[in-house]
């Protein structure tokens, strides 16, 4: 692999977590966001030779992502131009300023918090996020209602959010 290719991969790897979140905020669907991220990777590699190193790489890639999502029919707030613009600006500010080191720290805290959940709680998370099971299917498997599943997921997210905040602030 040549140097330029390696350089691109290093830069892209560093911004990719925030980029993915940004894309999700403009297009709140994991599956479609995955596709967009892949396309952005390809486009930004193809255009890399024209990238001015004095620019901010993250902002540049975010711009490509924004343009890509702009043409998607499933774009969030598609019919509300002003709000869409506000969302773009807010999301870009939030995720461009997000640092990889901070993300990793938060990820580590989350991993620890998940380990403290009981088995049933972990199972719900795994079915939802790893096996990508719909709530109706989860309900059928776990013999509960879909509404109960969704409520449980909401509570789990809240629990984990609090746990992360505590860990990040140094509490046991």
């Amino acid at each position: 692999m040549d140097q330029k290719h390696g350089e691109f991969i290093r830069q892209f790897a560093a911004v990719q977590p925030s980029l993915y979140r940004y894309i999700c905020s403009l297009l709140p669907n994991f599956s479609e966001a995955d596709d967009i991220l892949q396309e952005v990777a390809v486009i930004s590699w193809e255009k890399y030779s024209s990238f001015d190193p004095s620019q901010n790489f993250k902002s540049w890639v975010f711009g490509i992502a924004r343009n890509k999502v702009l043409h998607s029919k499933r774009r969030f707030l598609r019919t509300q131009n002003l709000m869409a613009k506000a969302l773009e600006e807010k999301a870009e500010k939030h995720f461009v300023e997000q640092e990889l080191g901070h993300l990793e720290e938060k990820q580590d805290a989350l991993n620890t918090c998940i380990e403290h959940l009981d088995q049933k709680q972990q199972e719900v998370l795994l079915l939802r996020y790893k096996e990508k099971m719909a709530s109706e299917d989860m309900a059928s498997k776990l013999k509960r209602s879909a509404q109960q599943i969704r409520t449980q997921l909401f509570r789990l997210r809240n629990t984990l959010r609090s746990c992360i905040n505590n860990k990040m602030m140094g509490d046991s």
């Binding site: 999700c24 709140p28 991993n111 998370l125 984990l160």
Partner: peptide, 23 residues
């Protein structure tokens, strides 16, 4: 909304790539 996106992706990454097994 934006913070929730952040948290959802964190959770997804942690569950998909983590090595935890149900306690």
């Amino acid at each position: 909304y934006i913070e929730s996106i952040d948290n959802q992706v964190f959770l997804k990454d942690a569950v998909c790539e983590g090595e935890f097994t149900p306690a």
